[in-house]
Amino acid sequence: MTPVLAQATEGGAAELWTFIIVGAVALGSAFGLILMRNAVHAALMLVLNFLAIAVLYAVLQAQFLAVIQLIVYAGAIVVLFLFVLMLLGVSREDSLTARVPGQKTMASVLGVLLFVSLAAATAGPFLGDASVCGSEEALTGTGDGVPCLGLAAVNAAEGNLRGLGFLLFTDYVWAFEVTAVLLVIAAIGAIVLGRRQEDPSELVEPGSTVLPARRGSGSAATEPGAGPTDADEGAATETSEATPSEGEERT
């Protein structure tokens, strides 16, 4: 399917419409991602975004990446995100208001600035007629923009997948092997990090829901039985039951 799509949109109006629709979806889902309060909804927005980008990959004559995007990102990674969200049960964020005052405003202003700078830096030279990939102007080089050659010729020779495969196992074989090692290390790291500690109380800092306001609190907190903890509710109730006088005093 995807090669067909790529070919179909080559330099034609279909590509423009595809770009407009899919780009709108990508932008909308991106905004949704950062604005949705519910983390699960955000994750779904992310999936939508990944899908849109996969479509764009296909249009951009990167059929293999489009598939990979679907499988790895939309399939594996987002599922992993959702899995963690479900596991931890933290789909709800209390509020979007930042503790740091002005963070949101600053971030928005900076985001706009970043966009302008990036667009000017990367996209600036590629807006002329010549930068329409595979167009006459691009091929003859008479346009005023930087010419966009298009991958049609390259992909036509051996196909996108074979071409990538040749590159990966010739020019980039070293990087490829290192990536393999990286993946193994990441897997081992995840296992090590995910391994449950023998004594959970050593992991959970008491009073961890509160910001550690004072530096000195760390030493007191590490003392066993320093106080009831949110994470260790059983212990907390036991403590309060064992010392009813304390509760009476409080009331």
Partner: peptide, 21 residues
């Protein structure tokens, strides 16, 4: 990035804003 863009523009390499814009 803004600095880089500024330098490019100053160098006259030009950021072409034509076509559909």
């Amino acid at each position: 990035i803004a600095g880089l863009v500024g330098v490019w523009m100053a160098a006259g390499d030009g950021i072409v804003l034509t076509g559909g814009w």
